[in-house]
Design a protein around this nucleic acid. Structure first.
Lengths: 367, 367
DNA sequence: CTGAAAGCGCTTACAG
DNA sequence: CTGAAAGCGCTTACAG
């Protein structure tokens, strides 16, 4: 355990008392914690006054506030969440529904949402979507959607998320992070998105500018035909009057990129590949290298996301940086707006996608 | 947005009704949702009976149960979390306190905890530790530790976590994931750990067996002198009567590994390096390569964790696989035990660390 | 500036 | 198998 060797467990109590000044006394009904009436009694005021102090209500005399605060400290009182939430009629927490939080984009998004929520005084809890099967989605909602929830943010980058979004019960404030913001859908749900289309366009353009005749694409699962990344990629190709190759459907993992890469490696026409994310790119590059097609000498590869490791891959990966944390902030702002329609529509502050050129792209070899 | 193009937003209502059979009617006080008494009224039974049905209580006649279920469906009723939690005296959620969830180990651990909690019918919420400063830790606890919480699991791999663990108010069930389980500390808190010491020992041993005279170490921040990884590394060196080099303190990121790698590259004595995690290893390798010291030709490198990408790095990384998801399960089991001391102590099921030899290690060059 | 009352929506005993 | 009562610990009106 990472305890400094100089501290023995016996120090625990000392530390708690030392840091917070709390006594460990006061055992009562509810798990040994003091209630608001205990504090009121101890401070010689009404329960209402304690409530006012806790909530930072202005109309409390300094003297009273001090007494109450002292009692709170003495009894080591903290409000019970459930009681507050129940009496307020709304819980003070947002739940984020998402599949697999270990994937970079979702993890960063979750971080952004949590930051914003915390800043606004809300807690974050997570509702995992195990599978896109309707019954699984339904179960996840049954489990995670409190009717008195402070709001739900669904990460609808994949089918499970899209389905969950549609099944959120009415009456719960909701917002979603989506792959692409189109007018039709944003009328149905408040949605926030990064400009994946522009990002894919820029990445493809970069490869074309280098002199590649066309650019192949290994897609992430979310990429249906309406996918923003696919759209941007196709648009750049079309604009350059380049041939539009068939999309190779990948998964989320390097392994699935590896498998796509093996197919790509077999095709001598392939000189440039745009991948749906960096993990995919890593796998693609590995397969290419194994097949004797070095990157970038023989084939150029671009990723998507700019995960923290991408700059240290060998070779360092050219990719598009996506501001998932910023998107998380935006989603939360959107949710706040959804919860209070009288509020003004928030501005989106997530950074625009940015092409980061590193060392996996270069002009094609002259035949 | 990732909606199939064939579906327009107008379909939303249809889908909700279609999938769940719910009516969208019934607007009442609390955010438009029906309460348990509404259901009771509609089904012509008492509120108690509805409660029994919801909670799967056995002593309810089939006929009654059916009627209640029908009313629940008709009114689209779902229980409000806060009300349940309050009346039960304990919330049905665990909160995971951790710093930065985007780091692989923590993300995987969180996933494991969430899985186990979900399986047990509990929700998971997250309490982020922004900094190890005592005031920040205290604030995080103030924010996240509901006195009626179902329990808290703290990820105490770093200083912030260790401090948080010690400051969890008495009366809240708690368990911790720690770097190393020692007898003293596990008497103070229920803790679960992976055998990092054995893992580091095995990794170091592997390098020594290859013929390296000694092994350098780039550590993650958690690694104090009592760190399990340091212990295992030192023990292996000592056993082999090898020189024990000074530890190079790294951070969590590839960038910090890169900086450590630059220092290592300058030292011609260095032929083998054990890194505190895979990200660090990636950075170290990058720096080494830039300095003209190829891996593994000139220097061998071993990581820690076996992140999903490690097998696809160039070269594929030799590392130690750690079962963080399993550790998460174990932490949750431990918490359950802490919440109910009469229960039997759970067995730990996390897989033992496993050295995965790939291509960043080989015998040192003959001078 | 302070307080007494009512109520949030459930569940836990206690009866029958 | 079913129900009437009391209460969980807060906050929201409403008074003063």
């Amino acid at each position: 355990m990472a305890l400094p060797p100089s501290l023995t467990p016996g120090d625990r109590l000392n530390i708690i008392i030392g840091v917070t000044g709390r006594a460990t006394t006061g055992s009562r009904k509810n798990a040994g914690s003091a209630s608001i009436s205990d504090v009121a009694g101890s401070a010689g005021v009404s329960l209402m006054t304690v409530s006012r102090v806790i909530n930072g209500h202005p109309r409390v005399s300094e003297e009273t506030r001090r007494r109450v605060l002292a009692a709170i400290r003495k009894l080591n009182y903290r409000p019970i969440r459930a009681a507050r939430d129940l009496s307020r009629g709304r819980s003070r927490s947002v739940t984020v529904m998402t599949s697999n939080t270990t994937l970079y984009g979702r993890a960063a998004l979750l971080q952004g949402i949590e930051e914003a929520a915390r800043y606004a005084g809300l807690h974050t809890d997570i509702g995992i979507l195990e599978s896109p099967r309707p019954s699984a989605v339904e179960a996840a909602i049954e489990r995670s959607c409190d009717p008195a929830s402070g709001g739900v943010i669904v990460i609808a980058f994949d089918l499970a998320g899209v389905r969950a979004l549609r099944a959120i019960p009415a009456g719960i404030p909701v917002a979603a992070a989506v792959e692409i913001n189109n007018v039709k859908d944003s009328r149905a749900y408040p949605t926030a998105a990064l400009d994946d289309r522009a990002a894919a366009f820029a990445a493809t353009q970069h490869l074309l500018d280098l002199g590649h005749r066309t650019v192949h694409h290994v897609s992430i699962p979310s990429s249906t035909n309406a996918s923003a990344r696919l759209q941007g990629w196709r648009a750049a190709l079309r604009e350059a009057r380049a041939r539009i190759p068939e999309v190779i459907a990948g998964g989320w993992t390097p392994q699935s990129g590896y498998e796509a890469g093996q197919r790509l490696a077999a095709d001598r026409q392939v000189t440039a590949v745009l991948c749906g994310n960096d993990d995919l790119a890593l796998g693609v590059i590995h397969a290419l290298r194994q097949a004797g097609r070095a990157v970038p000498d023989s084939v150029s590869v671009v990723g998507f996301d700019d995960v923290p490791s991408a700059a240290f891959y060998a070779p360092p990966l050219t990719t598009v940086r996506l501001d998932f944390v910023g998107l998380g902030h935006d989603c939360f702002a959107l949710l706040q707006h959804a919860a209070d329609p009288d509020s003004i529509m928030p501005e989106f502050n997530a950074a625009a996608p940015k092409l980061v050129v590193r060392e996996t792209t270069r002009p094609p070899r002259r035949p």
